[in-house]
Amino acid sequence: MINLNLKKTLGSAGGKMDLDLQLIVEKGQFVTLFGESGAGKTSTLRMLSGLLKPDSGTIEVGGTTWFDSCKNIDLKPQQRKVGYVFQDYALFPNMNVRQNLEYALRKGQDKTIIGELLQFAELGPLEQRKPETLSGGQKQRVALARALVQRPEILILDEPLSALDLKMRIKLQEYLLQVHKKFKLTTILVSHDIGEIVKLSDKVFELQNGRVIKKGAAADFFGLNKTSAKFRFSGEILKIHREDVLYVISVLIGNDIIKVVADRTEADEFKIGDQVLVASKAFNPIIQKI
């Protein structure tokens, strides 16, 4: 179990923000931190991994104290069993795939893990390649394998798939689930993609201004279980425009833009950028072979 109790004053784009956060994650869970940019998600994960020092509070993981401002305990990042994957891969450009993984080995650590990880990630044929010759998806598999070299108990994924196209994203989502299960990890994801969050996570915490404002099981969290409608998707509002007595709302779902007609009483409640659920009865859509 991860038990975070953190206080930290952060300088953000909108001025100062006081992060004041209590968060409990059960061992083996896949959880997502959700919320607007600047809500404190990445700062929270940096504090968990030891890259950022809280002003006060405690971090306990599996009964061990990693940080306690009162007792002056502050484990170094390399003493914390955390693997960190960033959106921009953060691979060393001058090293090949195998060297990137080897660089992450602890002093004196058995090297056999490298071969295992290369094989599991299907990176064997690419092990001599430099990062610049790899696709985005391949680079992210290398970054993920590297995060696993020290056999972490906690895997942190900070928007790991947001730079990838939809097809690769869906493939790597499956892969993330496999990794989570195979290595018995407690995984913490930061993502804005509701489809991705629902697919991957057991639990979601929404952060706003440095505080947890909402939490729940993923599908319940976004209200996706709250209607009998079976033809349903989540997406983001791109455009709202009036036509005759109606409003037409354009919603980005995956790579497709769909349109939903709404009454003005509904349209008034929406704004561009809102995350929405679009639903209809399973009885209504037509289906045709293409």
């Binding site: 709250k226 209607t227 009998s228 409608a229 639903a279 009865k281 009885f283 209504n284």
Partner: peptide, 8 residues
């Protein structure tokens, strides 16, 4: 009736 959605 096929247009009616129920939501708990």
């Amino acid at each position: 009736m096929n247009e009616i959605i129920l939501a708990p």
